[in-house]
């Protein structure tokens, strides 16, 4: 019998085990976020003053690791990557959402996941960010009928760069890997030129 991943889609995993895995995966996710220092708003915000580029390093190392893992497991025939659904693209709303998100991130100091991690370690400002986020989502829900036409504009469906550019996934994986490695080298040089004053636990 050949067992192909994803296990849930292959029927090797029931919904209840899936929910148990949710807690475990969440815990491991929160653990590594806190380990890296991303439960500290000052460290997160320092990314945007170029003093401490931990956010960039952690984020793109994680993306690289998961992307390479998906690619090679797919090549080996162990994982059916086509069963992993992409979330649909709505280009302009997502660009506007990104701009607003970035602004809110540096003003508040945390993104949604890191606000939970920080709140768990006693940061009261992170708890306030989480409360603000709930209010923002409530507001979105209230004005949704009015902004729905915009929110659903420029829909492109479930689309990856490989489909958009008609390029083999391996080529893009290679390009992103090189870009990330270049980014890491640049990040190290920027930090050094700023005196290497990385944010330490408070």
């Amino acid at each position: 019998m050949d067992l192909t991943a994803p296990f849930y889609q292959a029927g090797a995993l029931g919904p209840r085990s899936g929910l148990f895995i949710a807690v475990l995966i969440g815990a491991a996710f929160g653990f590594f976020l806190e380990r890296a220092g991303l439960g500290n708003g000052r460290k997160l915000a320092s990314q945007f003053y170029l003093n401490d580029l931990t956010v960039f390093k952690v984020m793109f190392t994680a993306i690289l690791t998961a992307m390479l893992g998906l690619f090679w497991l797919g090549q080996a025939g162990v994982l059916d990557v086509s069963l992993i659904l992409l979330s649909p693209t709505y280009l302009i709303p997502q660009l506007v959402g990104g701009l607003l998100f970035g602004a809110g991130f540096v003003i508040g100091g945390y993104c949604p996941g890191t606000s939970c991690v920080a709140a768990a370690s006693g940061k009261l400002d992170a708890l306030a960010v989480f409360g603000g986020m709930m209010a923002g989502i409530l507001l979105y829900g209230e004005v949704y009928p009015a902004i729905r036409p915009f929110a659903e504009s420029t829909g492109m469906g479930r689309i990856s760069f490989s489909q958009l550019l008609s390029v083999r996934p391996g080529v893009l994986v290679g390009i992103v890997t090189l870009l990330a490695l270049g980014g890491f080298a640049l990040a190290g040089r920027i930090e050094k030129s700023r005196g290497g004053r990385l944010v330490q636990p408070e």
């Binding site: 607003l100 508040g108 603000g132």
Partner: peptide
């Protein structure tokens, strides 16, 4: 903290997700 969180929360719905 609350203001930044609110802008970010609103933005997550336009973007269909976060970081």
């Amino acid at each position: 903290a609350i203001a930044g969180g609110a802008v970010m929360g609103f933005a997550t719905r336009l973007a269909r997700g976060c970081t």
